[in-house]
Design a protein around this nucleic acid. Structure first.
Length: 527
RNA sequence: CGCGGAGUAGAGCAGUUGGCAGCUCGUCAGGCCCAUAACCUGGAGGUCGUGUGGUUCAAGUCCCACCUCCGCAACCA
């Protein structure tokens, strides 16, 4: 396995506030990044904002501010949400930053000089009221502007294009040689069948009909158009082509580094087809993996700004805490498949897994250690009974399964294995009946071993949950009497870690949610 | 015939390379009394969308046909 990781989310478009779908993608990426770091790997994690384009220009005009003021305001909300969700990005790239603009211009020039970009004509449906071009599918069979509903006309304008035909063969070879590049694999077939086989069009990389974008140095009428601008963020953030390109060398150019892009299905095409082409044109290495996560739906329909059925993540986190929301997103929706959000599911998941199983396990264990051993965790003395041995083997197995699954980006499954450990530990209490052992002086050793094993199981579960339950896990460590330093992942296989620690009884980690109160509350948020 | 996904217990879902159909919730019966009305055990409930289809010793899984729902279709993650 490689030593370093570079993990990215897409850069989101600040035309409106973020919704739960954005939070989903960023949270899962964060879980991955945290889990790598906790296990001792060097991991650089990037997110950001894609701030150019006509829509921003128009929204700013309506709001009576400059485009820059407009995006500054919305991006402020991005920062707040990522803060609230405890996202640990190492950098936040904005496409309006100088460091990014220079890289885009540099890339454009190199591609132009190389003959990969040429000047041509862009043809599309034009709405003269909105001063915007639309695609065939956007205007529909009646040729109506999707924004103002007025009729549009065929029109053309001068534009630069990226010559995809120079790189199609090479891309196909790349796909063949790197079967794990695009996951899930069905996405690769989709790309090939839908876009490449029918003949790939050249990609429009500049426009003249609006001005809010990166200026083309060679032709001042033009600004760079979307994807060449947006995708470049992944290397501009590392300082590619700048005086300070240490990060770029360390993470992009180093063979020791695994580059992982996390993205949504709707932008797969750009990441899987054009991005490798751009990189090849620049003579740069391609990412190792592009992971396409599923779409988060609202019960039956897709969550979308235009349908107005978005879930606002801010009040959700404020009411239920960062851990519950992160847990729900990670555990409930199988990473890679589509999922749907429902208030009932949310409450059920939090109650079943976090309150009843995990939180309650901690609570009852700490309470017993308090009652039977004055709050001191008895030292580990091997396994006294078969029950102890059985629990120990589950602990070991959980750790190795978890690591394997995480490395394979099966985040949901990795977390599910921790649930199994927690359930196993709850069952272990019934098997060993500590309250009965406590009444028999001869069973003192057995009882001590049970308490030690329980504490260890809770520690391991909390350690493995930590990338998701970023605050509750620390509280669990504290209740076990572990310092954050002692709780470090490197000690996860140490059987003696909890010997003689003084526990601190605390409040339940996750209070049970009352569905009759919380379901209506969440439903209100969805209006 | 545009592309793709889905159809498995009352609900929501998981089922890697084919090898005794599982999980959570709900429900019924029991147990326990350390714990957050929590925890543990067991039962009921599925002909795995349809086929009087194919391959196989063996199909939820592979192949074929059909039905239904959904997403994408060139700037909503």
């Amino acid at each position: 396995m490689k030593k370093r990781f570079y993990i990215t989310t897409p850069i989101y478009y600040p035309s409106a506030r973020l919704h739960l779908g954005h939070a989903y993608c960023t949270t899962l990426s964060d879980v991955l990044a945290r889990s790598k770091r906790e296990r001792g790997f060097d991991c650089y994690f990037l997110t950001g904002a894609d701030e150019h384009g006509l829509k921003i220009e128009k929204n700013a005009l309506e709001a009576g501010v400059t485009p820059q003021q407009f995006v500054d305001h919305i991006v402020e909300g991005f920062y707040q949400l990522w803060d609230l969700l405890r996202i640990t990005n190492d950098d936040f790239i904005r496409t309006t930053q100088d460091r990014h603009i220079k890289v885009v211009q540099n890339a454009f020039t190199r591609m132009l000089n190389k003959g990969d970009i040429y000047l041509g004509k862009y043809e599309g449906w034009y709405c003269k009221y909105c001063e915007a071009f639309w695609t065939e599918t956007q205007v529909g069979p009646d040729h109506i502007c999707p924004d103002c509903q007025r009729e549009v006309q065929k029109a053309e304008e001068e534009a630069y294009f990226f010559k995809t035909s120079n790189y199609v063969d090479s891309l196909m070879k790349f796909f063949d040689k790197n079967p794990k590049f695009l996951i899930p694999e069905s996405r690769k077939n989709e790309m090939i069948n839908t876009f490449i086989k029918p003949g790939l069009d050249d990609l429009c990389v500049s426009r003249t009909s609006f001005s809010w974008g990166v200026p083309v140095l060679e032709n001042n009428k033009h600004v760079v158009y979307v994807w060449l601008d947006a995708l470049t963020n992944y290397i501009s953030a590392l300082g590619y082509g700048s005086d300070n390109d240490e990060l770029f060398k360390k993470y992009w150019e180093s063979e020791d580094c695994e580059i992982i892009h996390i993205l949504g299905a709707d932008i797969t095409r750009f990441h899987a087809i054009y991005w490798p082409m751009f990189l090849e044109s620049l003579g740069l290495r391609k990412p190792d993996r592009e992971f396409v996560h599923g779409l988060l739906m609202m019960k039956d329909s897709k969550m979308s700004k235009s349908k107005g059925n978005v879930v606002n993540p801010y009040p959700l986190v404020e009411r239920y805490g960062v851990d519950s929301v992160r847990y729900y997103l990670t555990r409930e929706i199988n990473f890679g498949s589509d999922g749907s959000f429902s208030p009932e599911q949310f409450v059920e998941r939090v109650n079943a897994d976090l309150a009843n199983s995990y939180g309650n396990l901690l609570n009852r264990t700490i309470s017993m250690i308090g009652k039977y051993f004055n709050g001191v965790i008895p030292a580990y003395k091997g396994h006294v009974t078969d029950f102890d041995a059985s629990l120990e083997s589950v602990i070991d197995l959980t750790i190795s399964n978890y690591e394997t699954l995480m490395d394979d980006l099966k985040i949901t499954d990795a977390i599910a294995t921790v649930n199994e450990l927690v359930n196993r530990a709850n069952k272990y209490i019934d098997e060993t009946t500590p309250w009965a052992l406590a009444k028999d002086e001869n069973k003192k050793d057995e009882l001590a071993s049970v308490m030690n094993h329980l504490a260890r199981a809770i520690y391991v579960a909390s350690r493995l949950y930590h990338p998701v339950l970023v605050t509750a896990s620390d509280k669990a460590f504290e209740q076990l009497g572990l310092s954050l330093e002692a709780a470090d992942y490197k000690n996860i296989r140490d059987s003696h870690l909890l010997d003689n620690l003084q526990t601190n009884k605390g409040n339940p980690l996750f209070p049970r949610l009352d569905p009759t109160v919380e379901v209506p509350f969440i439903n209100e948020l969805m209006k």
